[in-house]
């Protein structure tokens, strides 16, 4: 039983910005280019766009619909919809969220170090990758990681999300403008064409089962799907809110930022003679070089890493809020202690990731490649099978200016789960470890 009131979004703009804030973060700027670079280049975009339509947008309508109709987070939503042992399955999104916090806050820690580095200028000098190498998987990464966890805990514990959301209203558009400016600059660099070819002209021989699996996990992760945050967001929606149009806005808006990040990064990668398969450090190695090449790069740099940091922080706050709510609902703890407890667990899980690249990779793979699609699958089964496809569609259509036709029912009920299952099975059969 929910022991605290569910606030509802006061304005549509507030809701849109909050959803974009949840959906836009490090996954667009840091993870998307990494995945594209390491998993097929332009070929990755094919399953990515397919999954955006088949899984992503539909998934948002499912999870918001589930959250709104059941008026609660994962446990209440799964159980309320009638999913067997829903209260227990609803714990899965919380576990995933804590794992995500553990690695995500490490990236946020890198961003914070880079923010300081752009202010001092240290991040924009030296050999390519030197500044990144000075923090990533070095002992000092633990410090930056802990700072971001503590900051997130403070914000959630003292309920100052409002302040964060208000700054997000400035930071998100700023990040968006900056990425666009950087993209325009990047494509004009000498050597950029090779990067554009890599990013846009698919080599179909690279489209392996593994690429499909990673693309699925990326599209689910970047949209905050997986039975957790988006279900909670849905529970804050009013019946007069337009789920369908909002889902399109958030889903494509999220894609816009990721695509623009690719336009900023890949031409620069090739212009500066770096490898697109560099892995998780790709954005942090290429973006400083790009900024250095821009007139006024120091200023752009500060603005970029400041807005990136805020984008990441709004996401960690959203994630931690979801888990904290779960702790409060189940254990009836005080908010402060619940947040501190969640932060402590995330810290314990994340510190090894600060210094060990293998562990870092494993935690990302377990949470985003394997567990997240499963949790998304359960949310869909709960809404479409347990609650009922017809009722689900009727609910989603409430408040919507576009009526989803009957096609949505078999799509959400059969195709959506089937796609997830098939891709996961392919992953298992191919023995993919990410």
């Amino acid at each position: 039983m929910e022991i605290h009131e569910r606030p509802k979004w006061r304005t549509k703009t507030g809701f849109i910005l909050a959803s974009m804030g949840c959906a836009v973060g490090l996954a667009n700027i840091w993870m998307f280019p990494w995945r594209v670079g390491q998993y097929g280049g332009a070929a990755f975009l094919i399953p990515y766009f397919i999954f955006l339509l088949v899984i992503g947008i539909i998934g948002i309508t499912i999870e918001w619909g589930l959250g709104r109709s059941q008026d609660g987070g994962p446990q209440r939503a799964f159980a309320g919809a009638g999913f067997p042992a829903g209260k227990w399955w609803g714990i899965l999104p919380y576990i995933i969220a804590v794992l995500v916090l553990a690695f995500y806050s490490n990236i946020l820690g890198w961003s914070l170090k880079f923010l300081v580095g752009t202010i001092t200028g240290a991040a924009l000098t030296g050999e390519p990758g030197q500044f990144f190498g000075s923090v990533a998987f070095q002992p000092e990464a633990i410090m930056w990681f802990c700072i971001t966890i503590v900051l997130t805990v403070l914000i959630v514990a003292f309920g100052v999300q409002k302040g964060i959301e208000m700054s997000a209203k400035v930071m998100m558009p700023l990040l968006f403008v900056l990425i666009t400016v950087m993209a325009i600059w990047s494509v004009t660099l000498p050597g950029a064409l090779e990067g554009l070819k890599f990013y846009l002209i698919p080599d179909l021989s690279k489209l392996t089962g593994e690429v499909w699996l990673i693309a699925l996990s990326q599209s689910i992760f970047t949209l905050s799907l997986g039975g957790g945050a988006m279900v909670v967001y849905g529970s804050y929606m009013r019946k007069s809110d337009d789920i369908t149009i909002s889902a399109i806005s958030v889903g494509f808006g999220n894609t816009v930022i990721a695509i623009m990040a690719g336009f900023a990064i890949f031409p620069a990668i090739f212009a500066f003679g770096l490898s697109p398969e560099a892995g998780p450090g790709l954005a942090f190695v290429s973006i400083p070089l790009l900024l250095q090449s821009m007139p006024g790069g120091a200023v752009w740099g500060v603005m970029f890493f400041l807005s990136l940091f805020f984008a990441g922080l709004t996401s960690t706050v959203a994630i931690m809020e979801v888990v904290t709510d779960g702790v409060i609902d189940n254990l009836h703890w005080d908010r402060k202690w619940a947040a501190i407890c969640v932060g402590a667990i995330a810290m314990a899980l994340g510190i090894p990731a600060s210094i060990n690249p293998g562990y870092f990779d494993t935690i990302i793979t377990i949470s985003t490649v394997w567990m997240l699609p499963i949790a998304g699958l359960i949310a869909a089964l709960a809404f479409l099978w347990s609650y009922g496809a017809k009722k689900a569609r009727e609910h989603v259509n409430m408040g919507s200016s576009i009526t989803l036709g009957k096609w949505w029912e078999p799509w959400a009920k059969y195709i959506y789960p089937l796609v997830i299952i098939v891709v996961l099975v392919i992953g298992i059969v191919l023995g993919i470890s990410g």
Partner: peptide, 30 residues
């Protein structure tokens, strides 16, 4: 070069188009 431009335009249109359409529609209905 031409292929790059064509694909770039398509990718940008496919991502920006629905985003702008949906966001404008949402703002108008407020």
């Amino acid at each position: 070069m031409a292929a790059v431009i064509v694909i770039a335009v398509v990718v940008l249109a496919v991502s920006w188009g629905p985003f702008i359409w949906a966001t404008v529609k949402l703002m108008k209905s407020e």
